[in-house]
């Protein structure tokens, strides 16, 4: 099987790190009393794209479009109803060190120190290393994320921003094929967020990682990404388009807001999101599934925030 080379643009595109091959996810509709009802609720269907080696790809969509579900499927936490995930020419179905996840909720082991939270990942990735090698490698990533001095603190003593730094260090230190970031800055206050975004970018550039991020923050997506994938509203969400971000790096927030290209992209994405939030009720009628009523329709303010 030659799945690692997508049929389009074979000559120009760099090697694909991960192929999301016509993935659909649907849940059985439950009656009010919890028994299985008739029919299924399609979260998204036929999602197909590839993540190129070394790129930063961000997916944007309204809440309920299934972007976190898609990320869980890519990580192996969840199974797709149709289609599959292909990494290095092989289909993957279980979680693994080649697809490390940065969690929205940090998911640090609270009984371990910061250092040990990172070290446990290094040890898993390199079982043959000596203790000294493991410690050195761990320290390198701790330092890159600006955690020097907090090595022996438990996560409970740290702010959200510091916790997510540990989460990012833990994910990068095993050198995964693709990094999956599930709304990594959603629980961090706005001022700290910018600093950690910069650190994430520095880390991504130093280790040449491939990153897939899910977010609903438009500015964050433009600042960090090479390409941005836009999802329509669920149910029956689809991948609408993938847009290129043609802004040279290194990017800074101050430069960005003065660039016409930035404003063009921002308006494009916002228009897309707003038009899809207006169209949402109509989409529900055509689908006609009772569970569609549960999908929230975010306000314009929420989109622009």
């Amino acid at each position: 099987m030659q799945n690692n080379t997508p049929s389009e643009a074979v000559s120009t595109a760099p090697r694909s790190a991960m192929l999301i091959d016509h993935v659909s996810k649907s849940f059985p509709i439950l009656n009010a009393n919890g028994t299985p009802g008739r029919g299924t609720f399609n979260v998204f269907e036929g999602v197909k794209f590839d993540i190129r080696e070394g790129e930063f790809l961000t997916m944007i969509g309204h809440s309920g479009c299934g972007k976190s579900t898609l990320l869980n499927i890519m990580a192996g936490f969840d199974k797709p109803t149709e289609g599959g995930i292909i990494v290095d020419g092989k289909q993957v179905t279980a979680p693994g060190l080649d697809r490390m996840v940065v969690f929205q909720s940090f998911a640090l082991m609270p009984w371990l120190t910061c250092f040990d939270n990172v070290r446990v990942a290094v040890r898993s990735a390199h079982p043959d290393w000596t203790k000294q090698q493991v410690n050195q490698h761990t320290q390198k990533y701790i330092d890159t994320m600006g955690l020097t001095g907090s090595e022996n603190k438990r996560p409970a003593l740290l702010s959200g921003g510091m916790k997510q730094r540990v989460g990012i260090a833990r994910a990068f230190c095993v050198d995964p094929t693709v990094l999956l970031l599930d709304e990594p800055f959603a629980q961090i206050d706005a001022l700290t967020r910018g600093v950690i975004q910069d650190e994430l970018m520095r880390m991504w550039q130093t280790v040449n990682a491939t990153v897939f991020m899910v977010t609903h923050d438009v500015d964050e997506a433009i600042l960090l990404s090479d390409r941005i994938a836009l999802m329509t509203n669920g149910p029956n969400a689809r991948l609408a388009e993938i847009i290129d971000v043609d802004i040279p790096r290194p990017r800074t927030r101050e430069q960005l807001i003065e660039m016409p290209e930035y404003m063009r992209l921002r308006n494009h994405i916002l228009k897309f999101l707003i038009s899809h939030s207006r169209r949402a009720p109509a989409a529900q009628e055509t689908v006609g599934t009772p569970a569609a009523a549960a999908a929230p329709t975010p306000s314009v303010e929420e989109v622009c925030s």
Binding site: A75, G96, A107
Partner: peptide, 22 residues
């Protein structure tokens, strides 16, 4: 918490390590 178990499966812990480390 589900998160801890997910981290354990990401890091490819075997049954024994999963039990004693997580």
């Amino acid at each position: 918490r589900e998160d801890y178990l997910r981290v354990a499966s990401l890091l490819q812990f075997n049954w024994f390590r999963r039990l004693f480390k997580v």
